[in-house]
Computed example of a mutant assay.
Amino acid sequence: TVPDAPGQRPGAREPILKALALPGVVAVLFVVAAYVLAHNILYTYIATFLDANDMGEARDVVLLVFGVASVVSILITGAVVDRKLRQLTIISSALFLIAAVLLALLAGNVIVVYGAMVLWGLGWGGVTTLLQTAVTDAGGDRGQALLVTTWNSFMAGGGAVGG
């Protein structure tokens, strides 16, 4: 359970798992699970991926491109998350999906790899804000607690599945 909030009557708490019955919570948690798992499968082994595609020497630049794109995404997301939550979440997911497909199919092309890293960074950077906002809108504090558990579980799972 979540501790009593200021002004809440003692004992008025609901079990966290009851948040799963709230509309939208399970859908957001599914997106969290899928997105974080997929991201961590690739990100955990990006050095190995780059080595396999003769880009190991450019690892630092590739990750810098990803990081800069992620920061840009955070700035954009922070500015419009309250007005464009659904649209940004769909765009974020699509950018990551496109990047993953490009990396899977055309990783031998250096320009494609850098372009994919930009798309991936733009998709990933603001996703935490997007999904936290979505689950809080749907499930409040209880939804937020479930998000943290889901996020961390599937982050660990990404490394395991990727391996």
Results as ranks from 00 to 15, higher is better:
L29E: 07
L20W: 05
L63W: 02
T128M: 13
L130I: 08
L103Y: 02
V101M: 02
L17W: 14
I91D: 05
D60N: 15
Y35P: 07
V62L: 05
S93W: 10
V113C: 00
T1H: 12
N109F: 02
H39E: 15
V148A: 14
A134C: 04
V80M: 11
T128G: 15
G157Y: 12
W124R: 08
T136C: 00
Y35V: 09
L88C: 06
G163E: 01
G158Y: 03
W124V: 15
G121L: 01
V135N: 04
L29C: 07
N40Q: 14
V161T: 12
A94I: 15
A21Y: 07
F49V: 00
E57F: 04
M117Q: 04
L20D: 01
L50Y: 00
S70D: 02
G67V: 05
H39M: 11
G158S: 09
G115D: 11
E57L: 01
T48P: 08
A33S: 03
N109H: 13
I16P: 08
G121Y: 03
T48E: 07
R59L: 15
S92T: 01
A134L: 06
T44I: 00
I41G: 04
L17H: 11
A156N: 13
R59I: 12
A107S: 12
T77S: 08
L146F: 02
V80L: 12
L85Y: 13
Y45L: 08
A47K: 09
V71D: 00
F154Y: 11
A52N: 14
F66L: 05
P6H: 04
T129Y: 03
F66N: 08
I74Q: 13
V62Y: 03
L130H: 01
V71R: 00
I91V: 15
L88I: 06
Q132N: 12
L105Q: 05
L95I: 07
A100T: 11
N109G: 03
V65L: 04
T128S: 14
A19M: 06
F49M: 03
G157Q: 07
A156E: 07
T48W: 06
V161P: 03
Y43R: 08
Y114N: 05
G24F: 00
E57M: 12
S153H: 03
I111L: 15
G67I: 01
T128K: 04
K18S: 13
I98G: 02
P6G: 05
G78L: 07
F66S: 05
A107G: 15
L122N: 02
N53C: 09
L106E: 11
V135T: 11
L97S: 13
N109T: 12
L103E: 02
K84Q: 13
V36Y: 08
